[in-house]
Structure formats: C-alpha cells, structure tokens
Amino acid sequence: MANVKLGIVRLGRVAGKTKYTILDEDDISLVTTYVFEPRMNIDHNGNGVRIFAYAYSVKRGRTHAKRVQDLLWEKHRGGIAPGFSVVHKNGITMDNRLDNLQLMKKNELEKTTSTNVCDTSIYYLAIQQLPNDPIDEHFSELNVTKYYDANGELIEEGDDGATFYECHYPPCTNIEHEIREFSVCGHCQQLRYCGYVCQQKDWTIHKKYCRQRKRKLRQRSLSPER
C-alpha cells in the first residue's frame, strides 16, 4: 500500500452513509471539471441493488452524468462499443482504478456473488485511512440505513414490499441479495451488517447512536399505559 498512490473522492451520502470512490492518482484532476455523486442502480444480473459512482460535467449538468468507470475507460482506452460494458474485476463498484476495470460483452456477464470487502483489498485499506465523517460522528440521527425495494426505490421501513439492506459499515459495499440476509444489531434492532467483522469495526461510531436508541426503547417499555 505504501507504494500505491491513489485519489479518494467523497461522493456524498446514499443508503444512510457517506460513500467514497478511489481513482488512480493521475485521474484525481477530474474533480476540477466533473461533479461526482453516488447513485443506486438495479443489478439486472439478479443481484438486487448496487451503488455506483457517477460523474457529470459542471458545464453540461446532471442529465449528462455517466458512470465513473465508463468515463475513465473512454479517457484511457477509447470508446465503448455497443453491446459491451465496463465492469470492476474485483466486484467493488467504488474501486475505479484503471487496473480494476475491464471490458466485457453484456451477454457474457455472469451472475456475481456478494463481494466481501476484506482487509487486504486496496479499496478497504484506502477508506480505512480516512477520518470519521463529521456528519456520522456528530449527527447520529442521520446515521441510519435507508431501505430500497427490488426496483431501487426508497421505501419506508414499515413497507411490506421486498426490502434490501446495505451493510452499514462505511468501507463495505455489500447489499443484500435476499430479503433479511444480513444480521441486525442486537441492541438497537435497526442497523444491519453483512457479517460480524463489519459490525465490530463500525462499533466505534455506531455505539453512540445505538445506546441512545436502546435507552429510548427501554424508557418506552417502562412508560405506563394510558
């Protein structure tokens, strides 16, 4: 990691947390002419909803936004022929290093399994270098996972539709493929994680919100009925 030079771009908040994308150092200059943001897309390969980094020219506006992997491929490799798509080799859609991109025929794209953002991935190591987001740390009421149905539509928690959760740990990009696939925090009964490791690493920030919610739930259960 010491010899790898990367650019890290803050995309903004989606699915209840701040998202970042990593770029090669030579591509970080794109932030001077493009606005970057996260967007949720339906994965037509059967993987539910996925989050991608998008960018649009300051001059042209959001209606001309394109996925960052497409922008980088066109910059370095040329145009993308009809019937082809730029994909991420390691399955991490926030890892937009050129070495992590490849061109594939759309009809050859196979179903992919959930990507575990392990401690050895460059994306994971890069995001771990960042300080805690001030919004997450000081505004716990905003630090809540949002819920999306199979069409990528934001829905209310009580909606009876098919609900997919994203792992609440910021560096992790895993989203459920099946309903209620992820485990829920045993204290607040609200935030979901793809595994114990992510839940444990997120505890430093989550514990502030979690304890507040647990206290409110306890007070509510002890309140006399009227």
Results as ranks from 00 to 15, higher is better:
A2D: 10
N3C: 07
N3P: 01
V4K: 14
G7L: 00
V9F: 00
L11S: 12
V14L: 07
Y20S: 08
E25F: 12
L30C: 01
R39W: 03
N41V: 08
G46M: 01
G48S: 05
I51K: 07
A55T: 05
G61W: 00
G61A: 04
A65I: 06
H76F: 13
H76K: 15
R77D: 02
P82N: 05
P82A: 09
G83M: 09
V86Q: 06
V86T: 01
V87H: 02
N90A: 04
Q102A: 14
E108V: 00
L109R: 13
D119I: 05
S121R: 05
I122F: 00
L125I: 09
Q129L: 13
P131Y: 03
P131N: 12
P131R: 07
N132I: 13
H138M: 00
S140P: 12
L142M: 05
T145N: 12
T145F: 05
A150C: 07
L154T: 09
D160E: 15
T163G: 02
H168C: 01
Y169G: 04
E181N: 02
V184S: 00
C185L: 03
C188E: 12
L191M: 14
Y196E: 14
V197H: 03
Q199F: 06
Q200S: 14
W203K: 08
I205N: 11
I205Q: 08
I205T: 14
K214R: 07
R215G: 09
R220F: 13
L222G: 11
P224M: 07
